[in-house]
């Protein structure tokens, strides 16, 4: 190929990529901006900008959707899910990282499956079982349902982290007479802190945004923010769109704050590739 033509093709390809990326980012940004504008609008019907500005919709949304109790439920659910997922997941990840045993591959598959099956597929049978156990509609049911993708996620993130830690450190602790619990607490947990932080922040962000499972298992008193938002949009005909938009903004700010905190501690590209490489070859 002629070098001039190749350089031109190269530039055209780069321009096309940049254009696509810009188109995507600009449209998403404008979409968010549209919701933000609407949430501060006094009246906004088919014009470029609203006729006046107000913050009343936020107070209206707060009262109308009982956001104080919804936010409190969200906080309770999310922190319970993160804590329980860590308590269940980290020890399991430790065993998977350090030991080889019969049925390890089957166990890996068991932890991978919930991430490969659509939530609705197992959510509906799960909701049926939870209704039978009289747990559906309560906050405990919501926490249990959200743990199903959360716990395997912690295991998949933590296993490669633990594999990186030198086993000699554990042996040294053993030589000095530490039992398993002390070794865990004084040697492993401090070394694992970055990984635990990363995993818990990612579980947190995912749990806030996870709609299907909460939607299937929640009752009126155990809705999280995302489900309350769905119902608000679903019944939007009755209400002013601005108050729904105000609620959407509150939702976005809540998740965005946590994502930005997470991105400070986690380089997203490294995390996912470690998840992929190690468990499949281990």
């Amino acid at each position: 190929m002629n070098p001039g033509v190749r350089a031109w093709l190269d530039r055209a390809w780069r321009g096309l990529l940049l254009g696509t990326m810009t188109l995507f980012v600009v449209n998403v940004a404008l979409m968010i901006a549209a919701v933000a504008t609407s949430s501060f609008a006094r009246r906004w019907l088919g014009t470029w900008f609203p006729e006046g500005w107000t913050t009343n919709w936020y107070t209206a949304a707060w009262k109308e959707f009982q956001l104080d109790s919804v936010l409190w439920v969200t906080v309770e659910v999310v922190f319970a899910v993160v804590l329980l997922a860590l308590v269940i997941g980290v020890p399991a990840a430790y065993t998977l990282a350090r030991r080889n045993f019969l049925g390890k591959r089957a166990l890996m598959l068991l932890f991978l499956l919930p991430l490969m099956v659509p939530p609705i597929t197992y959510g509906i049978p799960l909701a049926t079982v939870l209704y039978k156990a009289q747990l559906a509609g309560t906050i405990y049911g919501v926490i249990l349902a959200n743990l199903i993708p959360a716990a395997p996620f912690v295991i998949l993130v933590m296993t490669p982290f633990i594999e990186q830690i030198d086993p000699n450190l554990e042996s040294a602790a053993r030589v000095f007479g530490a039992n398993t619990a002390r070794m865990f607490w004084h040697v492993l947990v401090p070394l694992l802190a970055p990984g635990i932080l990363a995993a818990s922040l990612l579980v947190l962000v995912r749990t806030i945004a996870l709609f299907e499972l909460t939607f299937l298992t929640a009752g009126p008193d155990s809705q999280t923010l995302v489900v309350a938002l769905y119902y608000a949009v679903f019944a939007a005909g009755v209400r002013a769109p601005q108050s729904v938009d105000a609620m959407a903004m509150i939702y976005m700010i809540v998740t965005l704050v946590w994502l930005l905190i997470a991105l400070r501690f986690v380089n997203p590209t490294q995390l996912v590739s470690r998840v992929k490489e190690q468990p499949l070859t281990a």
Binding site: N27, V28, I32, V226, V244, A248, T255
Partner: peptide, 21 residues
Amino acid sequence: TILVVPITLGTVLIAEGALTY
């Protein structure tokens, strides 16, 4: 980071935003 941020939007918020925009 900029390309990853929409992950947090969640399907419900995207639906609401898309209806407006």
